[in-house]
């Protein structure tokens, strides 16, 4: 049963091409905020975005936007903006004309005003009167985003949106998407750059071989992966003494002194967190720094891909 009130929902959605399964029985619901769609090349990220955008028919299951199927339903585009990854922009149009075209096709009452606002939002005002064919890749990407934003959609789907942008543009775009998410919009973007996802997305959907390997806050995902050890590095007043104390605790199954830092591996994240201060005090050691080393998205993603 579809979830009432869900802005974006996949329910048992699959998509296959002949014998090749691109997306396999994926279900998730998205509300407001930024969600990162993460996965290696060929995992099925673009297929999911294209199904959500009504550009691909799900072979099985439901793909809904505000409770209505996105497939063969152009009305959903009142609420959805899509920034495709590869598709080129009409090179003979200026940036402003491209945004204006999108506004006209959305039948907005003031297409010129909407186009100007969208162009300003993505920071292309100075280049608005130049043909898109003369733009850099990053500028073309911003023009596409302006086209997707022009009708102020409540749902924004972006396929590798930061490709080709320089670091400053990337930061600006992240800030923009963050602001839009704060306004309650649903933003789903795919990226193979983990740092982008980690910086921008509160939630991640990890797609591996067409399956949803994990979803939610990536730090939570990491903590729930109890079959993988957690690794911490510590700096203390006496690393050797602390190592001797820790190695006797049942939740710790590995300690290593390396370059002035103590690395600890534990299978019980919560148990270790509770026991550490007690053991340190018992050993007469002061802890200066405690840092989890494998909670970053790259580590989480690496684990999930290997599973």
């Amino acid at each position: 049963m579809p979830t009432p009130g869900a802005a974006v929902e996949l329910l048992g959605a699959s998509r296959w091409y002949g014998n090749v399964v691109a997306v396999n029985d994926i279900s998730f619901v998205l509300g407001g905020g930024v969600t990162g769609l993460l996965g290696p090349n060929g995992a099925g990220k673009s297929t999911i975005l294209h199904m959500l955008a009504g550009l691909l028919r799900p072979s099985d299951g439901l793909v809904n936007i505000h409770g209505a199927p996105s497939w063969r339903n152009p009305a959903v585009y009142h609420d959805v903006g899509l920034v495709p990854e590869r598709e080129s922009v009409h090179s003979f149009l200026t940036g402003f004309e491209f945004a204006q075209l999108n506004a006209r096709l959305q039948r907005l009452p003031d297409p010129d005003g909407a186009a100007r606002r969208a162009i300003a939002t993505v920071g292309l005002t100075d280049a608005a009167d130049r043909a898109v064919g003369t733009y850099s890749k990053g500028m073309r990407q911003r023009a596409k985003i302006a086209g997707a934003l022009v009708h102020d959609p409540s749902i924004l789907l972006l396929d590798e949106p930061f490709n080709g942008m320089d670091p400053r543009q990337r930061l600006q775009m992240m800030e923009l998407l963050g602001r839009m998410a704060d306004e309650g919009r649903v933003i789903l973007f795919s990226s193979h750059i983990l740092e982008e996802v980690e910086r921008l997305a509160q939630n991640v959907l990890v797609i591996v071989s067409g399956r949803l390997a994990a979803s939610g806050d990536f730090r939570e995902i990491r903590r729930l992966m109890t079959d993988r050890p957690h690794t911490f590095t510590l700096r203390s007043s006496d690393d050797r003494q602390l190592a001797a104390v820790l190695v006797g605790h049942p939740s710790v199954f590995g300690v290593q002194l390396d370059g002035g830092r103590l690395a600890v591996r534990t299978s019980d994240y919560a148990g270790f967190a509770r026991a550490l201060p007690v053991m340190a005090r018992a050993g007469g050691v002061s802890i200066f720094e405690l840092r989890p080393t494998d909670e970053d998205l790259e580590s989480v993603f690496g684990y999930l891909v290997q599973r």
């Binding site: 009142h78 075209l101 006209r104 959305q106 039948r107 009452p109 909407a114 969208a118 102020d152």
Partner: peptide, 24 residues
Amino acid sequence: MSGQAATGAPAAASGRRSVILTIA
């Protein structure tokens, strides 16, 4: 963009003709 919500509504019937002309 936040002040633009009102522009998201479809235009009146006159806009329908312009879509075909715009595409053409």
